[in-house]
């Protein structure tokens, strides 16, 4: 039997979750930077409107993630992102990581770390965002309000750096973008970048090292 040329990688639920989080995240980043950077505040001004957009997008962002948790495929992806195998550490250290020598599962070690960082930053931003939104209702003392402001700002700066890296890597890997758009990935690309996953997806036995 001829092997398929494209491997099923992401279900519609996973693609929807990624798309929704990306759109809301972009809205949050742009509106947040307008609120944060004086130069942009001066250009745009409409502070109450920008603030409203930022708050609504922030409150909505967890919804697609929770919705996707209903999907077994998404939960399996979270499990794969969570677990580090010994070869992941080699992958992080190895400059030749992209040539298919190291065994890589569905996600490489960089993607695993980035996913954890995105999730951590997301929870920190959501929590501090709620504190900034409702300081009086939550009866927060000044120290915590200041802490929430600083942590929200600093986390944003770190997250923007992470997002720039995320977008740059996506730009360099059109096949990875195609997988999130169409749900399938080219076999040759998968063999090179996700060797173990490509093997398992095609039902081939594990290569003994």
């Amino acid at each position: 039997m001829r092997p398929p040329e494209r491997l099923a990688r992401f279900t519609p639920a996973e693609r929807f979750a990624h798309r929704a989080v990306a759109i809301l995240g972009l809205i949050l980043t742009v509106s947040g930077l307008i609120l944060y950077l004086p130069e942009l505040s001066l250009l745009v001004a409409r502070r109450t409107l920008v603030e409203g957009v930022h708050v609504v997008a922030g409150l909505l962002l967890p919804l697609p993630v929770f919705a996707a948790l209903l999907s077994p495929a998404f939960r399996a992806d979270l499990g794969a992102l969570n677990r580090f195998v010994p070869s992941d550490w080699s992958w992080l250290r190895n400059r030749e990581r992209r040539v298919g020598v190291l065994p890589v599962g569905k996600f490489n070690a960089g993607q695993k770390l980035a996913a954890a960082a995105f999730a951590g930053a997301g929870v920190v931003l959501f929590g501090t965002g709620i504190m900034l939104l409702l300081p009086t209702q939550l009866a927060l003392p000044d120290g915590l309000r200041q802490g929430a402001t600083i942590v929200h700002d600093a986390t944003t700066l770190a997250l923007v750096a992470l997002l720039v890296g995320h977008a740059a890597l996506a730009y360099r890997h059109p096949e990875a973008r195609r997988a999130l758009r169409t749900g399938t990935m080219d076999v040759a690309y998968a063999e090179q970048n996700y060797s173990e996953w490509a093997r398992a997806s095609q039902g081939r036995p594990r290569n003994e090292p």
């Binding site: 677990r83 195998v85 010994p86 992941d88 695993k112 960082a117 920190v124 120290g143 802490g147 929430a148």
Partner: peptide
Amino acid sequence: DQPLGAPVGRRVFLGLVGLGAAAVAAGG
């Protein structure tokens, strides 16, 4: 087929959330 591996993702995630919470508490 393969060892399950350490839950590094969860550790990084919880570490970041903990760091954020600590920094909020140290706010003033």
